Amino acid sequence: MTDPLALVDDWGPEKIVVVSHRRTGMKGVLVIDNTARGIGKGGTRMSPNVTVTEIARLARVMTWKWAGVDLFYGGAKAGIVADPNSPDKEAILRAFARALSNEVPREYVMGLDMGLTENDAAIIQDELGDRGAAVGTPQHLGGVPYDELGVTGYGVAESADAAAGRIGLALSGSRIAIQGFGAVGAAAAQRFDQMGAAVVAVSTAYGALYDPAGLDVAELLRARDQIGDGFVKEHGRGTALPPGAELTVDCDVLVPAAVQDVIDDDTARRIKARLVVEGANLPTSPSAQEILAERGITCVPDFVANAGGVVAAAFAMDTRYSGFRPETTVIFTAISARLRTNTETVLEEAQRLGVTPHTAGRGLAEERVRAAMVSRGRIPRAPRSSW
């Protein structure tokens, strides 16, 4: 078992709160990583395998993500140890919200992550009696429904287009492989399709489908809605592959958009894509990132490529108590502009310094967070020169 104190470094976490509720069996954790640039904001996930270390890692990603797109919120994340398909989901969610009523929404505002939906965000608001307790609620409640709008996947495709242009790859006509066909992967596939790219592989936990000539994205979405994630076995189109094989198919752009830690050193050596765009959080290990760079494969970091969700969340945060619903066209325009600019900036900085994009992007984000920590007196100012 990891000692939570061992997770603390120069950046955070500032607070780790572990909660439980005997009657419902709820167990959960909130990690507020760094609030130098603003209140803690990050998604809440529900999974039987949630750990404190996992949530702490994701909270740190949120610190860099907010700073990377230069928006003024702090890194945080929460997790609930439970099956999101449990018939007791609502009771567990309400118990979790109650247990964190000291922190929410004064120090942390809940959002959506793996296992939670727009309606779950509404349940949190209802339990705490506060519209400001969570964002990502349904549109009919005045919220910004991230998954329904597909904001994160949209941003991944916009980031990929910017990165492709920088390496001389025309996205239109290119071949895209996507791991994961949930909210992020499916929305990215739709946007790639609109851009004229061919989605040649998609996957779920049940397996993958591959067709070098391109899959029909609209047909895949219909099949998923009708059958569920098992459509990759029952769809009947394309070649069926085992889970994970989609990472190494012949393609131009690879988008890991499922879970963390899926590209290790061995997989990095077998990837055939020219460009990897991280739709999921933490899909590559640091050593895998180095291998990709050595092989001349550009890898756009998660905290850059999948930041469309945080841009949308910033709009939702801004209007939590407003009687007016945020304009979706404004949100999508902002996502495209910020992610394209940030992608180009990070890749240019990586080339200039001769480091991986992860190192370059994190360095830029660290500068912004460090400046905020100095201004707030959280770390000492550098001594003035006597000259």
Results as ranks from 00 to 15, higher is better:
150 G>W: 06
247 L>D: 03
258 A>D: 15
70 D>W: 00
318 D>Y: 03
167 I>M: 08
25 G>Y: 08
201 A>E: 03
84 P>S: 09
62 M>C: 04
310 V>Q: 10
313 A>R: 04
284 T>L: 11
149 L>Y: 04
180 G>K: 08
263 I>K: 04
59 A>T: 14
229 D>W: 05
309 G>Q: 14
180 G>C: 04
154 Y>I: 10
16 I>N: 04
281 N>Q: 13
135 V>D: 09
247 L>F: 04
323 G>A: 11
293 A>K: 15
34 N>M: 06
97 A>P: 09
56 A>P: 02
112 L>V: 07
342 N>V: 14
373 M>I: 10
366 E>Y: 12
361 G>R: 03
188 A>G: 05
244 G>D: 11
105 P>Q: 13
148 E>C: 00
289 Q>G: 12
234 E>S: 13
186 A>D: 09
46 M>T: 10
147 D>R: 15
277 V>I: 09
105 P>L: 10
334 A>S: 12
126 D>M: 00
253 V>R: 07
193 D>Q: 10
35 T>V: 14
268 A>V: 11
349 E>I: 00
8 V>H: 07
136 G>K: 12
119 N>L: 15
379 I>C: 09
31 V>W: 03
321 Y>Q: 02
230 G>E: 13
274 R>C: 11
6 A>Q: 09
267 T>F: 11
91 A>H: 04
383 P>M: 13
90 E>R: 09
116 L>I: 12
196 G>Q: 01
216 D>E: 13
155 G>Y: 00
192 F>A: 01
235 H>M: 10
385 S>F: 07
304 V>Y: 03
295 R>L: 00
345 T>Q: 09
370 R>G: 02
332 F>D: 13
298 T>Q: 10
298 T>V: 15
200 V>S: 05
194 Q>G: 03
251 C>V: 07
159 S>D: 07
